[in-house]
Design a protein around this nucleic acid. Structure first.
Lengths: 126, 126
DNA sequence: GTGGCTGCAAAATGTTTGCACGGAT
DNA sequence: ATCCGTGCAAACATTTTGCAGCCAC
């Protein structure tokens, strides 16, 4: 049974749900450590991956830097600011991908879309 | 002037063009080293990044593992096999992305699309 | 001759793993 | 009492960087 209800696992899940900013493993660890100085970074990594596998959260592998974690479990796309590095949810319908059958025999299971550009804050700071 | 024509730089460019398989930095290094045992991996990294910046090749940052380099310089999408890890060019028109203006103030400069699934070889080896 | 480029090694970054102990069931 | 999960440190994977000497210009 891969599902023991440890305090550490609860903390990781709750923290990702509380930080609604697509944090990476290190940011989650840094926040948890403030209240629980004993927790190990390896435990945070292990639980983030486990929880993502079980569907309690989503692992977002972006094209640059560390993997992020997202409390939203429904399929949705992301927008990454190339200046500040922050990740944002793309509003529903912001991007639409159409596939044809012409993949040369490649069987597509998943489509990853990442919109790269400038967030409102960085756009203004020209 | 950031453009001295060193032997190492030529070797890196030629090797990426010769290996038509989207190699990562380590694969490029391993191939070059066979004929030029003196070359440094740092030099390979530096030249790959420089050449990609100058537009002589393309850096492909995939969602898993090391960055790949592509001798094709035109914009095109890629398909990554989740079993063997190999990267393939998506045929023109295999995927089509439509953007709307509803990005909540985010300025989109670039759209990254990665088709993840099984390549013909791995699909058959069920 | 000058200053960009190289080789080397070390550091930086992000993540996983081996192992002994402790705690949830 | 089991044996999964934890903490710690070390290993691992990928990439960057500091520095002294070299070589294309």
């Amino acid at each position: 049974m891969n599902n023991r209800n440890t305090i550490q696992r609860q903390l990781v899940l709750e923290m990702v749900r509380a930080m609604q900013c697509h944090p990476d493993a290190d940011q989650v660890y840094t926040e948890i450590v403030k209240a629980h100085p004993h927790i190990s970074k390896a435990t945070v990594y292990r639980n983030l991956n486990l929880l993502a596998e079980q569907g309690a959260m989503r692992k977002v592998q972006v094209s640059e830097g560390a993997d992020r974690f997202d409390f939203r479990t429904e399929e949705h796309y992301h927008m990454r600011c190339r200046r500040c590095g922050r990740l944002f949810d793309a509003p529903d319908g912001a991007a639409d991908v159409a596939l044809t059958a012409e993949t040369g025999g490649f069987f597509v299971e998943n489509v990853l879309v990442e919109l790269i550009g400038l967030c409102p804050d960085c756009k203004d700071k020209k």
